[in-house]
C-alpha cells in the first residue's frame, strides 16, 4: 500500500529514538507527529511513526522508530540502529539515572550497533516543564553533547516547548551531510532476498 506513495518524497530519513524507560520518547514522538500530548502506555519493543515534512524546499519522509527503554527489549532494538541517519538520545531532566545511563549504556549501544559513521546524534533533555524537580542542569547536558559530538536541546513534550525545533534541527543537519543525503535519496530499501532473479522471465533452461 505504501509503494504508490513512495515517490512522493525526495528523501527518506530513518531516525531512531533511544533512552531509558519512561523518559518520554513516545510522548515526544507523538507530540512531533500529531502535536498532541498524552501519557502513553510504555512501548512494547518498538513503535514506528511516519511524518512528511518540507524542509529546504525538499519533501522529506521521516520514518521515526521509537524503541522501548526496558532492558529486556534491548537485544531486539539493537537491530533498529542499522541504517539510521539520526539517533535521538532522550533523558529525563528530573531523573539523574536516565542521564548517566546515556553515557554508560546508550552511547555504547550506538557505538556497537550503528552502521553509519556519519550518523547525526542528538541529545534531548525532556520534561523541562517540571523545572522544580530538575536534577540535571543544562550545562551538564551541554558538556555531554560536546564530549560525544551531539546536537543538544532541552524540551518538553507536555508543553511542546522545542519539540518541533528538536526534530527540525536534526533533519537540517542530516541534509547538510552529503553521505547521509545520498543514503536518503535511495528511497525505500528492498530486501535482496525477496528480489526476483534478474533473468527470471527469460530463464527456461533451468527446468529439468
Amino acid at each position: 500500500m505504501d509503494s504508490s506513495s513512495s515517490q512522493e518524497f525526495d528523501y527518506l530519513f530513518k531516525l531512531l529514538m533511544i533512552g531509558d524507560s519512561g523518559v518520554g520518547k513516545s510522548s515526544l514522538l507523538l507530540c512531533f507527529t500529531s502535536d498532541t500530548f498524552d501519557d502513553l502506555a510504555p512501548t512494547i519493543g518498538v513503535d514506528f511513526k511516519v511524518k512528511y515534512v518540507m524542509m529546504d524546499g525538499k519533501k522529506l519522509k521521516l520514518a521515526i522508530w521509537d524503541t522501548a527503554g526496558q532492558e529486556r527489549f534491548r537485544t531486539l532494538t539493537s537491530s533498529y540502529y542499522r541504517g539510521a541517519q539520526g539517533i535521538i538520545m532522550v533523558y529525563d531532566v528530573t531523573r539523574r539515572e536516565t542521564f548517566t545511563n546515556l553515557s554508560e549504556v546508550w552511547a555504547k549501544e550506538i557505538e556497537l550497533y550503528s552502521t553509519n559513521q556519519d550518523c547525526i546524534k542528538m541529545l534531548v533533555g525532556n520534561k523541562v516543564d517540571k523545572e522544580s524537580d530538575r536534577v540535571v542542569t543544562k550545562k551538564e547536558g551541554i558538556d555531554f553533547a560536546r564530549e560525544y559530538g551531539c546536537l543538544f536541546i532541552e524540551c518538553s513534550a507536555k508543553t511542546r516547548v522545542n519539540v518541533q525545533q528538536c526534530f527540525e534541527e536534526l533533519v537540517l543537519k542530516i541534509l547538510d551531510t552529503p553521505s547521509l543525503l545520498a543514503e536518503g535519496s535511495k528511497g525505500i530499501k528492498k530486501n535482496i532476498f525477496k528480489d526476483k532473479p534478474p533473468q527470471s522471465d527469460a530463464a527456461t533452461s533451468g527446468c529439468c
Partner: peptide, 17 residues
C-alpha cells in the same frame, strides 16, 4: 513499514517475549 505504524502486527514478537 507496510502496516504504517499500526500496532497490531509488528510488535507480536515483542509481545510474545
Amino acid at each position: 513499514e507496510a502496516s504504517n505504524g499500526s500496532f497490531n502486527y509488528f510488535a507480536q514478537l515483542e509481545r510474545d517475549i
